[in-house]
Design a protein around this nucleic acid. Structure first.
Lengths: 350, 350
DNA sequence: CCACTCAACTAATACGCATTAGCGAGCACG
DNA sequence: CGTGCTCGCTAATGCGTATTAGTTGAGTGG
């Protein structure tokens, strides 16, 4: 059978033969030539010409094996990178990742191991595959610690997108939720609110605690309470809202989570109580509203610069590759004035 | 520079030393051992034990070098894979691609060469980079023929997503636009329309000509005109719409393109003319509306099974890799009744 | 004119694993 | 007691590239 023609990829040796030089010379011309070995221009040109003619492309595996690099950056997440529902995807990050990687001459390897069968269970050792690339970007909060530590200990360049503290040596880039949350709350306080409530999930993810910290910072002299809810939809009732208002609360702040459950519940409770923002009270969201819940009015809050974070992650990773220790990047979030907040209602102010 | 400290990962050789066997034996025990070489159980156990003790993990690069394939499928397009505007992206295809690739144990390489700098000009030889993978998926209508031919001639496994006829040996998978377009138009004709206009871009991509063919087939006895526009937004004016109507046209059909420009322009022109679908005229789209243009009413047209096409492309590619010739796949599109079409307005019918 | 440097390459080797060929011991058979 | 086999394992080699250690031929200086 002729079908299995493995003629495909030309090797350096073939380029060498065509150019009438040694394989070493080809490697020197086409590879990095970090040693600064001098090659005559005419020879160089002959080699380049031959390589172009044959369509030579270096083998990433061989390159990697020979202890160099292969211009490949990995992208790994433990959920599918392209889930059926785009709302849960890393698409916004990937926009920045692709742009920045292209700019720096890297191609991207999407490790699909995690999503095998479209199911949940990741194959054991799936993470190990990333070693094919020069370095790897990690997405999502659910990357298990143990296999990760292995890679980190071996000095494999890794950058986690999103804050990640339990492995000290693991580089990460994240958004500055503290500053952004603080800014949103300060905006409310400036508008005249004296009592503000933060509603958050009962969960201690860094993203949540950061927001709470920012909330407190932004309060300054105003008074704030934090309410932790386990089951938002059940606990955030219209009665609860009215009770808070009776106690003098004029502004409600919700944290953003994967599901947007807290914001949804708060929003629904307010509506069910017959109240409207910003006339009767002010509402703010520490993040962006879930994309599947298109509201007529834009919500006061902030936008996470996802594409920028993706790009920053690539930069951090290439820094690592260059042997530099990148400082953990904290990207600023853009304040979104929105239209769900304003001055507290007159009758209740002061 | 001392470089990376190599002490991290143990090699098969070290496992072998600890277990008191040869490296070959370790490879046999831990690797596939496709040859079915017999190893005594006690030896096997000793090797496994040693591997566990040292925390051995195979080096994918070395493994792939030795195995002459790297389990990498390429994804290439001449526009950015993740454009800033998700509407233009291949996301829906990628959903299927990722799923299917994962199922078959392949990782994906996204070649960013095409999008370098976010600009249009592709670096010369960008396509050559795909040789790094075992095979490659091609997206988009604008992949230039010449570099492509090179790869095909070399026997490099390639599958184009979307019909592609000018290179006979190039495998492709596509949607059956002819049948789907025909169905949509027939739906209009059945509803009573006697004069229908198709608006398409002035471009001869197979996807466009197929739609036009389907349009003609669907007309049957009704009368149809095809209008080619170069600059949709400028040429499709409200006046143009009114003129068509005066000439007896009661239904307008637009082709779907990457940008959705034609549909947008048509839609806007109709609205600007003060006309409404389906009361005053019928509108249909040979494809899906751009996702960033959320309309209240669903549009009459058809849905391209993008994820399914992506998956089919991966299957075709792995078939090629296995040495089989895959038949070109034509996936059927689902008719979408929508609510922008109906019977022609009474006063003008007949 | 000979040791000596320098430019421009090349030969040889390492990387970690898979695979192929082969080797020694034990055993059955004639 | 020699031939032939099978079992269980190992030595050797190759994959494609990067790197290190030469090698050669031309020029330089004394």
């Amino acid at each position: 059978m002729t079908g299995k023609i493995r003629r495909g990829r030309p090797r350096q040796a073939e380029v060498a033969r065509l150019a009438g030089v040694s394989q070493t010379t080809v490697s020197l011309v086409l590879g990095g030539n970090k040693q600064g070995i001098v090659i005559q221009e005419s020879t160089r040109q002959r080699v380049l010409e031959a390589a172009r003619t044959l369509g030579y492309v270096p083998d990433p595996a061989a390159r990697r094996l020979a202890a160099a690099s292969n211009n490949l950056l990995g992208v790994f997440s433990f959920t599918a990178t392209f889930p059926t529902d785009p709302a849960h995807s890393y698409y916004p990050f990937l926009v920045g990742v692709e742009r920045e990687a292209a700019e720096r001459g890297f191609d991207l390897v999407l490790f699909t191991g995690s999503s095998s069968g479209g199911g949940r269970a990741a194959a054991p050792g799936a993470l190990e595959r990333v070693r094919l690339a020069d370095g790897c970007l990690l997405f999502g909060r659910h990357v298990p610690t143990e296999p990760l530590r292995r890679l980190v200990d071996d000095g494999f360049p890794l950058v986690h997108v999103g804050r990640r503290d339990e492995i000290a040596e693991l580089a990460w880039v994240g958004a500055d939720y503290v500053a952004a949350s603080s800014e949103v709350v300060a905006h409310l306080v400036d508008a005249g609110h004296r009592r503000v409530v933060l509603v958050r999930e009962d969960d201690d993810a860094p993203a949540s605690t950061d927001r709470e910290r920012g909330f407190r910072e932004g309060l300054a002299t105003a008074e704030g309470t934090v309410v932790r809810v386990g089951a938002p939809a059940r606990e955030l009732t219209p009665e609860w809202v009215l009770r808070q208002r009776a106690a003098g609360v004029t502004a409600f702040v919700a944290e953003e989570t994967d599901t947007g459950a807290v914001w949804r519940a708060l929003h629904d409770a307010v509506a069910a109580a017959g109240l409207r923002a910003p006339e009767d009270l002010s509402l703010a969201l520490l993040g962006s509203p879930p994309p599947d819940l298109p509201l007529a009015t834009p919500v006061t809050g902030f936008d996470i610069p996802r594409a920028e974070l993706g790009a920053a992650a690539v930069r951090a990773l290439t820094d690592l590759l260059a042997g530099q220790r990148p400082g953990a990047t904290l990207a600023g979030c853009a304040f979104r004035p929105g239209a769900t907040s304003g001055p507290p209602p007159a009758k209740e102010a002061r």
